[in-house]
Design a protein around this nucleic acid. Structure first.
Lengths: 158, 158
DNA sequence: GACGTCGTCGAATCATATTCTGTATTCATT
DNA sequence: AATGAATACAGAATATGATTCGACGACGTC
C-alpha cells in the first residue's frame, strides 16, 4: 500500500460514487489502472465494503447513547448476543472498570430503556451505565492518512 | 419514506455497489423506479454519502480508544477544535460527569498520548480519561429498520 | 366523468465498468 | 551487463449499467 492507495481510499471515503476516470484524473492514473488498484484493495480486505452513510434522524433514530456494561463473569464470547440486539451499532471490549462499551441508537429514551433491559438479560451482565449524547459534533470515516480534496468534518460534508 | 425506502437503505448499507436492476429485482421495482427512489433519498439528505468502509488495521490504526473530556468551561462550541485533530473519528456532547466523548484511532498508544496532549491544549479542557478498546465485537451501519438479505454483524460481513 | 398528480414500466440513449493487449519499468538472477 | 520475470500502466474495445423520457395506471379532487 502506497500513497496512491491511501489517496484513493480517502477519495472513496469522501465519495464512493466517483467514476474510475474521475478518480484517476485526480490521482494521476488511467481509469483502468485505478480500477485495478481499487480491485486489489477490495481483494485484500483493506476496503471491507462500499456502503451508504445515513442520517439517523431521517430514520427516526433520535437518541444516541454509549453504554458501559459491567459483568460478574467473562462475557468475551458474547459478541453474538450483543449483535442480536439490532439497536446496538458498535460493541467493543475495553480495559478498565467496564468490560464492554456499546454504541446504541434508538428512537426514544423509552426504547433505550428496553434495550438496556435486553442487555441485562445477557448471561454474565451485572450492570449497565448509559450516557446519552445530547449532540454530535461529527462522525467521520476512519482516517487513512490520504488527503481528499475535502476532509469530512461533519454530516454536511457530502 | 416507506418500507420500500427502508429496504433500499438496508440493501445499500450492505453493499452500495449493487446495480439498480439488481436492487430493483430484490425490492420489486424496475431499475428506473429504483434509481428515482435512491435519487430522492440522496436529495432529501437521508443518504448523506456513499463511502467505503476501511479496515483500520490495514492502515496501521491498531489502537482504538474512547476518551471522555471534562471541562471547567463551556466547550460546546469546540467542535472545530476537535475536528482539527484528525485522529478523532467521532465527537459527541454527552450528559453526565464528562462533557464530550470522543472516539479516537491511532497507530500506537504513544500516538494516543500525543492526541491526549493536543486535546488538553483545547481551551476549557480540564481533564481526559481514555478507555482503550482491546477488541471489537462489531461495528455496523446505523440501523434503518429495513431487512437486507444479510444483516451485517461484523467486519467479515462483506 | 374530467382532470391533475404521482409512481412506475419499458425502451432508448449515454456513460461507465471491465477486460485485454502492448509497453515500460523494476527487480532478481546469471 | 544482459536477460527474464513480474508488476504497473495507458489506451482501446466491448459489455454492462446509469440515466432519461414517454406512456400508462392508480388515486384523489372537483
Amino acid at each position: 500500500m502506497d500513497d496512491v492507495d491511501r489517496g484513493l481510499l480517502a477519495l472513496l471515503q469522501a465519495d464512493a460514487t466517483r467514476t474510475y476516470a474521475d478518480l484517476g484524473r485526480e490521482i494521476g492514473l488511467s481509469a483502468g489502472a485505478t480500477h485495478e488498484r481499487v480491485r486489489k484493495l477490495r481483494a485484500a480486505g483493506v476496503i471491507r465494503r462500499t456502503t451508504v452513510d445515513i442520517d439517523p434522524a431521517a430514520v427516526d433514530l433520535d437518541v444516541l447513547a454509549f453504554v458501559t456494561v459491567d459483568s460478574v463473569a467473562w462475557i468475551g464470547d458474547s459478541g453474538p448476543a450483543f449483535a442480536a440486539i439490532t439497536e446496538i451499532q458498535e460493541a467493543h471490549v475495553v480495559a478498565g472498570a467496564a468490560s464492554v462499551l456499546l454504541k446504541v441508537r434508538t428512537t426514544s429514551t423509552g426504547a433505550l430503556q428496553d434495550v438496556l433491559r435486553r442487555i441485562h438479560a445477557i448471561a454474565g451482565v451485572s450492570s449497565t451505565q448509559a450516557t446519552i449524547a445530547l449532540d454530535t459534533f461529527f462522525e467521520r470515516p476512519t482516517p487513512t492518512g490520504g488527503t481528499p480534496a475535502h476532509d469530512g468534518t461533519g454530516p454536511d460534508e457530502r
